[in-house]
């Protein structure tokens, strides 16, 4: 566009002016996209505040965003909230790391071996539907109310999404590549390393992301019951004192942390899987 203009009007001040404006224009486009992305949550917050200003919601049941923000700031400034976040985050990362390692190893094993699949399938199918929360009583009995029990619950919750998606990804290996490998007499180990695992990677990444989400759900559940620190504890503690603003701060923190970790995993996925061209909506 500007090239055409330049050709017509020659090397005059017009070209320079347009050229200088170009970074500004792309900045404006980025700002527009950002605004669009934030529009819905912003509108919900404004609506929420508006309903409060109109006296339509009782602050005891649902404090307005302004109060929540103030509480958020107080808790952050006192160092209380960062501490709870750090404690929960550590639990999540521990549980998730265990789940990811076990889920990947077992998933790859089951995906590659029909007999291992046969041997484990029923057990997995039976244990998978049990919500991690239902394990809490046993976890307390087995591990007490210390860290181990909570990490156990988290690992259990995150394990199955990783496992199932890893198996799925491996099973979806394109039969055409299997034929190719047969024709080229590719060894089994190379076939696994260069065909099966790269092909399963998108599915494995999905499993890891879902697993991490579940880990956040589980950490809160575990902390609601027996904890003296952590975001889940913060919520439970506030509920007992009817501090709904603090409950909301805890809830929003969990949402934000989950989103943040998902963004990180998505970025990792983007770096690992450069070859995939997928449909991302209209």
């Amino acid at each position: 566009m500007s090239g055409l203009v330049a050709a017509v009007s020659g090397p005059g001040p017009v070209t320079g002016w347009r050229e200088r404006l170009r970074p500004l224009r792309s900045l404006a486009a980025a700002a527009r996209r950002g605004a669009f992305y934030l529009a819905l949550p912003a509108a919900l917050i404004i609506l929420w505040q508006g309903l409060f200003e109109l006296g339509l919601i009782r602050p005891i049941l649902l404090p307005p965003p302004s109060t929540v923000a103030r509480t958020f700031w107080t808790l952050t400034a006192s160092g209380e909230l960062p501490l709870h976040i750090a404690v929960s985050l550590l639990r999540v990362l521990e549980g998730f790391a265990i789940a990811a390692a076990l889920g990947l190893i077992l998933g790859i094993g089951i995906g590659l071996s029909r007999s291992l699949d046969q041997a484990t399938d029923l057990t997995i199918q039976l244990i998978k539907p049990i919500p991690p929360i239902a394990w809490i009583p046993l976890a307390i009995l087995w591990f007490g109310i210390g860290e181990a029990g909570k990490v156990y619950i988290i690992a259990l919750g995150a394990f199955f999404p990783v496992l199932v998606n890893t198996i799925d990804g491996i099973r979806q290996t394109d039969h055409r590549y299997v034929e190719l490998a047969r024709i080229l007499e590719v060894t089994r180990s190379r076939f696994i390393a260069q065909v099966v695992l790269p092909g399963a990677l998108p599915s494995i990444m999905t499993g890891l992301r879902v697993g991490l989400m579940v880990a956040w759900i589980c950490v809160v559940a575990a902390e609601l019951i027996a904890a003296s620190r952590g975001v889940g504890y913060l919520i439970m503690d506030a509920r007992q004192l009817s501090q709904t603003d603090q409950v909301l701060v805890g809830m929003i923190t969990i949402g934000a942390m989950g989103k943040l970790l998902d963004v990180l995993l998505k970025a990792a996925e983007h770096r690992l899987i450069t070859w995939k061209t997928t449909y991302s909506g209209n």
């Binding site: 055409r176 590549y177 024709i183 007499e185 260069q194 790269p198 990677l201 995939k276």
Partner: peptide, 22 residues
């Protein structure tokens, strides 16, 4: 050689060609 190229999308051209060499 098949109708579709059947190249492995995650391997470079050279790695695809070397895929059957051992």
């Amino acid at each position: 050689v098949f109708q579709e190229h059947r190249l492995l999308p995650w391997l470079t051209v050279e790695a695809n060609i070397a895929f059957g060499l051992k």
